[in-house]
Nucleic acid binder design. Structure first.
Lengths: 327, 327
DNA sequence: ACAAGTGTTGAAAACGTTTTCATAATTCAT
DNA sequence: ATGAATTATGAAAACGTTTTCAACACTTGT
């Protein structure tokens, strides 16, 4: 029923080997190549990628495993990754783990079974810490969140530096009782927390941090409760866009005026942070650059498996808006 | 080097056929099944999905082709689709076309070459109109946007009805000079435009529509120019979340107070529409339901290829907020 | 004119599975 | 006890490609 390469070969009056070479880049005379092209068109032939991958042992595929596809940070990164992959003639298998390590394990096994050329991975902290040498039997680049130190390439933000910049800015604006609400599932959130704490210490201020699942509703509940307590913070640092949204919702629900009653500074320059009133001060991550660099590292790792491990650290850009009393 | 099913067979002292059956659901005695399981663990065997798919001629894969993965509508739908696929033991290949028909063609060809079991597709208007019988040689369910009438299953919103509801609401609130800004690339936008026009006519009002690429920056430019003209509309209906965002930006840039100077009503209940001041009146789409229904239709079509074409129309829910002078 | 290249081509092997098909072992009805 | 039906197993074919290998047809340098 379905038309295969032997049908094309028969139609063109050549061998299957010649058809295969004509379709690829093998040496074929111009005359035969034209015959083959005509036969392909005439038969409506479509190569079978499963067969091709099996025989050639080259899947031309990379995996991209992210924690939350609804988070604009990851969708933006995935766009950059796909563009780079597409330019290199590769396909991307996009996987969404929902910050769930069981799903991570499942997708990592899938990557093995698909025989992908490599994987770009944003792991949960639990998985990153449990990973030993050899657990990832394919070239891997960690993204956003570093894996076990020294084992794999990674491209991450200067999280501590970015957090410190937010604290410095808040201090300069006159805030002192600055709290921090950070995600509980990623090493990135942990680094941001540490950067926050270090900066607070540097300014001689008391750090006060809480952890929460990196989702808007969880963050809203946590922030709302916090803001009700006596001695509540007069400014909040939030470790990603979802948590920032939750905190903003909580402040509004409590009727707090921003920045007078509560200042807000967070991560991820999502479109809406500029739409609300006042605009929210955020660290903008170079999302396209992160995706592109990750693909670059991955390709180089695939080409040269034994080269030393590399870590690319990119800087965020602080965008100062009304939520911290700026501009 | 890499361990295959014959290595497992050798380790377990059985034939490859038995290993295959033990791994699948073939009839194997308990004793041998245990031996095979042990051998699998001992060897660290991972099945090669390419080989499996080639031999079994069952890819266990569906394609999902959307127009813009950054649009929260599509990410939400894709989540629902993936969940349903996962429950059925299927994989999803997610493709993003950027509203570009060349990329659509490329991905449709990829779907053929991957020999997917079926495809869920949100086509551009250009592609939908150009599609004839037999152009899609796999089971296909159109989503969000209907394809050529009567050829394929589809699950869509009652776009005309939803648009009309927005117009009715605006009229009830006392607005008369109501303009409409609609996307130019989708049949969905077209239906929303028609629904708007019909409702305006029903109220004895003049319709006034413009088209724009469904992206925030394009919509902002178009809306901004429009709002500068004499006789500008006092209310605007916007055909999706991106265009709504553009219009909101334009209004703010022009210093127009909402809803006093300009009322806004649009589609897609994205998180930020509730965060801005005033909140934006929108039609909420049943995104999870859309994805789940699409998968259901697709599975049924795969199981029974010759059943009559079905079209599922879901209703949106109007969420009335301050941007139209409501609540 | 001859040996040695240089390039094109086809036959057949190979990729790692699943699925037929035949066979051996078991159960069951008589 | 015997033949028929059932069940578990293995050998080998099959899935649709790419790649090896040998053969062939040319050039080319001498």
């Amino acid at each position: 029923m379905t038309v295969g390469i032997r049908d094309v070969a028969r139609a063109a009056g050549v061998s299957t080997a010649t058809v295969s070479r004509a379709l690829g880049k093998g040496p074929v005379s111009e005359a035969l190549r034209a015959q083959v092209d005509a036969a392909v068109r005439a038969t409506g032939y479509r190569p079978n990628l499963s067969a091709r991958r099996l025989r050639s042992q080259a899947t031309q595929t990379v995996g991209l495993i992210v924690a939350d596809i609804r988070n604009p940070f990851f969708t933006a990164v995935s766009r950059a990754v796909e563009d780079a992959a597409y330019d290199a003639g590769m396909r991307v298998i996009l996987c969404n783990t929902d910050e769930d390590s069981a799903r991570e394990a499942m997708y990592l096994r899938l990557m093995e079974e698909e025989r992908v050329s490599g994987v770009i991975f944003a792991p949960t902290r639990a998985t990153a810490e449990a990973l030993g040498p050899g657990d990832l039997p394919f070239p891997t680049v960690f993204i956003d969140r570093a894996g076990p130190p020294g084992l794999h390439d990674s491209v991450v933000l200067d999280n501590a530096g970015a957090s410190a910049a937010l604290v410095d800015h808040l201090v300069a604006k006159g805030f002192a009782r600055i709290g921090g609400l950070f995600g509980s599932t990623s090493s990135t959130a942990q680094e941001r927390r540490d950067g926050y704490a270090a900066a607070m210490a540097r300014h001689g201020l008391d750090a006060c941090v809480r952890s929460v699942l990196p989702q808007a509703d969880a963050a809203e509940a946590a922030a709302s409760a916090w803001l009700e307590e006596p001695g509540r913070p007069e400014a909040l640092v939030l470790s990603n866009g979802q948590i920032l949204m939750g905190a903003f919702r909580a402040a509004r629900r409590r009727g707090l005026r921003i920045p007078n009653d509560l200042a807000l500074a967070g991560f991820d320059n999502e479109p809406w942070t500029d739409l609300v009133d006042p605009g929210l001060t955020v660290i903008e991550q170079p999302v396209a650059e992160i995706g592109a660099q990750a693909m670059r590292l991955l390709f180089e790792r695939i080409a040269t498996p034994d080269q030393p491990v590399r870590k690319v650290t990119l800087s965020g850009r602080a965008i100062l808006r009304g939520s911290t009393g700026a501009a």
